[in-house]
Each structure stands twice: as C-alpha cells, then as structure tokens.
Amino acid sequence: MRWLACYLTTGKHMAFYASFGTVLLLLAITAPVALLFGFGGAMAARSPVAPLRWFGKGYTAIVRGVPDIAFFLFFVIALDQGFEWLRHQALCPDWDQPVRQGNDFVVCDIAKLPLSSAPQWVHETYGFFLAVLTFAIVFGAFAANVLFGAMRAVPRPQLETAEAYGMSRRQTFWRILVPQMWIYALPGLSNLWMILIKATPLLFLLGVEDIVYWARELGGMKTQVYEYPHPDWRLYYFLALLVFYLGLTKVSEAVLSRLTVRLSHGQATMAGEAQRRAGA
C-alpha cells in the first residue's frame, strides 16, 4: 500500500496527471479556433468573389484529403521552417550561406524559433501552439464542410422572405442564415468534437507529451534500472484512460443534447415545431 502510494506520486506520474490538463487545454483552445477556421472556410466557399471561393473550396478539399498522420509529420515541420525562414529573412539580411545545405535546414541563430537558448518550457509552449494551429487547420477544414452544408440546408423561403423585406445580402447572412444554420450543423460538429477528443495522441508526433504517451511510457515493463521495477502494466493504465475518455464523451453528450434543445427553439424544423406545440 505504502509502496503504491509512493509509486503513484513519482515525478513521472505527476507529469502523467498534468498531461490530462494539457489535453483538456488543447481541446478548449482548439475547438473554438477550429470552428472559427471552419466558419471562415465556409464563408469563403460561398463567396460571390471567385478567388475567395476557390480558396475556401481548395482549403476544405485539400486538407480533408491528406491523411492526418502525414499532415502532422510533414506540415508541422514545414510550418516551423516557414516561420524560421521568414525570421531569417528579416533578422539576418547579410547571411551569405544557403538556408538549405543538403538535407539540413540552417538559419542564423537569432532566427531560430524558439531561440535554442530559450528555456525548455518555451520550446514546449511553442510546440503546443504549433499543435493547436495544426489541429485547428485540420479540423477547421472538416468544420468548414459541415457549416457549408448547414448553410445550404436552411430553407430557401426564409432567405427569400428576408430579401423581400429588403435586407441586403450581408444582413440576410448574419440575421437570418447564421442563426438558423447551427441546428443543421450541430450533428456534424458534435461528431467532429468527438473525433477531436480522441485525436490527441497525434500530439506526440509534435513532441507534446499527452496522456496516451505517458500511459504507454509508465505502463511498459520496467527493469531493475528503474526505481520501481514492475512487469507490463499497460492494461491498467489504458483502462484508466478508457474511463477518462468515456467520462469525457458522456459529459459532451449531455452538453450537446442540451444545446440541441436550445438551438431547436423557434426553428422551422421538426424538433422546433414539436417544442412550439408542447409550449402552446
């Protein structure tokens, strides 16, 4: 018992417990950012301006088509190199060596992001934000497609009525279309949210240590080199993760179903109509 108490409070276990916070923080930041990207993407895809429309459609089509793991392995390195290259151009104009030397990507020291002299937590935070950005781009593309569909699902007569009242295109969009589309988007968005919850192990590809990484690391067999040698305990760690993920799913479902009820209110859908009758 005493052994277990000591074992469960080692520095490594503390890092494991903290990683639950990392995952929740990632979800809390990524979800709204991805929704914003999605909204922007959907708006661009319906734009009357052709280049903007191409951009919106291209974004959703390309990002949705690239496998996540390829995206996470290569896009992030490219993104990081892109940032460093921009800083390199700005900060070291008199650098005479090429940036690409064979396989190597070399920028001047002060263009490094973060600086290699920066403390470890800066590197970790930077990695975390790269992760948020990448997740937001990937899930934003899916969200864009969902929202694009939802915008088209709003009954056409609603928009015609708005036009008949003399509303401009912009007014129709913000006052009639957007408030009504959420109920159509919700099933798709809730699916995305559930997938996002489970996608966090991809974080380790970016060097962010998430709960699955730590569970695997802690559960793996430990030889005598370690302070607490033990056989393969991954099963127990993964069971703990299972409970965590199921709990998170359960909470999400409860929140989403309440949201559905609220969003149906006063809508020209079957659920909205049923609510109206029940109230009358």
């Binding site: 080692t10 490594k12 370690y226 302070e227």
Partner: peptide
Amino acid sequence: VVRMGTEGAYPPYNFINDDG
C-alpha cells in the same frame, strides 16, 4: 546551448526515470 535529442525509451541507454 546545445539541445540533445534522445528517444527516452531504450534503457539502459536512455530512458525517462521515475522523476520524469
């Protein structure tokens, strides 16, 4: 400052100890 990259999963060469 030199950043040393390792795997941290290959004892006894390199591993993450109980302090993390």
